[in-house]
Structures are given as C-alpha cells and as structure tokens.
Simulated scan of single mutants.
Amino acid sequence: MLVLLPPSETKAPGGDGPPLDLAALGFAELNPTRQKVADALVDLAADVPASLAALGLSQRQDEEVERNAGLWSAPTLPALRRYTGVLYDALDVPAFGRAQLARAQRRLAVCSALFGVVRATDPIPAYRLSGGSKVPALGPLGSLWRPALEPALARVNGLVLDLRSGPYAALARIPDAVTVRVVSEGEDGRRLTVSHHNKAYKGRLASALATAPREPSTVAGLVRMATRLGFAVERTGEHELELLADA
C-alpha cells in the first residue's frame, strides 16, 4: 500500500544531509522533469520581484526566494522531517516506534510540485513552490508533470490511498487510487465536507494505516482496517471513502 500525502507550504529549515542529489530520490524516472523544474526555480530566484509574484508571496517572504536560490547547495532532510504543518503534526512521526517508522517509511510518499513525488526517506532541501504556481519558464505545472508523473504512479504495486489536496491531485491522475472525503454529519443527517480540520483527520488516518502491522490489498480491506483502528469510514463509491470527522 502507498499512502500519498499532500506537501505543506511550510518546511522545516536547515538539515543535516548533503546537498540535493536527484539520483538519491525514489521514482528515478521523474529526474529529467525534476531537473527542469529545479533549474527554472533557481533561475527565477535571481529576480526577487518576479519570484514573489509567481509564487504568490508577499515582500516579507523574500526568505522563501532565498531558499529557492540555494536549492542545489542547501542541506537536506528526509521528506517526512522536511514537511511541517497541521497534517504532519497529526501524522506525528516522532512518536513512531522503530517498527512503526520502518513500515511508515515504506508506505508513505509525498506529492510535490518540485519533485513530483518523493518517498518518505528521500533527502530534500527546503523550497517554496505550490501546485498552483506558474513558473514563467515552465507554464502550468500540471501540464508539465502529468506526462511523467501519471505513468510513474500507475506503476506502483498495490493499493494507493490518495490524500492529496486539489492542486496536487491536478498534477497527476491516478484512476484506481482510493480517495477520502472528510465529512461531518448534521442533526438532519446531511453530510458536509469538512474544511477546517480536514488535514488533521487525514494525517491521523495516514498515521494509523502507515504504522499498522498489516496492510490492506483491497478497498474493502482498507475500510475494515480503518474501522478496526477506530475511524468511522464508509465506502461511497468504487474508489471513494467518507471519513466521519466527529464520530
């Protein structure tokens, strides 16, 4: 099973790993596109106003442009330590035991506008690039990534649980992946999509499934496992699940 996470806008600073080496990353077939995006991002960083505009940043965020400028020389961290924020707080990797961490490192991957997708242990630098950004030299990132990323993800063996947010789901379609809609149920029984706590619930679900001693191979098995782990999950389509937030 592969649990595909969205990235985060915020990244942990610094690192203790060597500078970025694309050969050290998983999904090696993505490296030509990774090289193209990384080089374009570094070139763009030479023009700070243009970078701020393309990345949707304010003038007070020019340190993010500095990060992009040093993309090839900055220290790295494993992807699961690099990404931060609500979902990753809920994932709570520091709380994993040794066996749990080993399982999570095999099962978790992160979608990325810069790298396409990275494995949990892939060493990456801090950077700023969102799925909806338009780097002038590249155009829409979806058009760039789809020809490379869709075949790469199609070759993944086993069940794929797709927890990506909209801009990152647009980078590659995964027809047979299982998606999750986090919902709340009103007094009238109607279910509404949860927005505020959506990331936290998905982070907790990902954590539980990634560290479980066994992994499912079917959608029905995934529902049974999530239920045993304490989640209120219902199958609403062939590859669609609903996670009841307030159960």
Rank of each mutant, 00 (worst) to 15 (best):
A170H: 09
L171R: 04
P136E: 02
T236W: 09
E63A: 13
A137F: 01
G237S: 09
P19C: 03
A38N: 08
V156G: 06
R98G: 11
P78V: 10
P151F: 00
E238W: 13
A226S: 13
A220P: 14
G26S: 01
K134Q: 15
K202W: 06
A120C: 11
A90S: 12
V3D: 00
A104E: 05
P123K: 05
L30F: 00
M225S: 11
H197K: 15
D162M: 06
C111P: 10
A23D: 10
Q105H: 12
V219D: 03
V86M: 13
R214K: 14
V110C: 09
A120V: 05
V86I: 13
P78G: 10
G132I: 04
A79G: 07
A232C: 14
L91K: 02
G97A: 04
G166R: 15
Y168G: 03
R81N: 13
G85N: 06
S143R: 15
V135A: 00
L153E: 02
T236R: 12
R228T: 09
E240A: 15
L141C: 01
V117P: 04
A109Y: 02
G26Q: 00
L91D: 02
L209W: 02
R81M: 11
K202N: 05
E9V: 04
D188T: 08
A46I: 09
L77N: 08
T84N: 08
D92E: 08
V219F: 04
W145A: 00
A28H: 01
R103K: 11
F231C: 07
P167N: 01
Q59E: 13
W72V: 09
R224A: 13
A102L: 09
A24Q: 11
V233Y: 08
L101C: 09
S184K: 14
F96K: 10
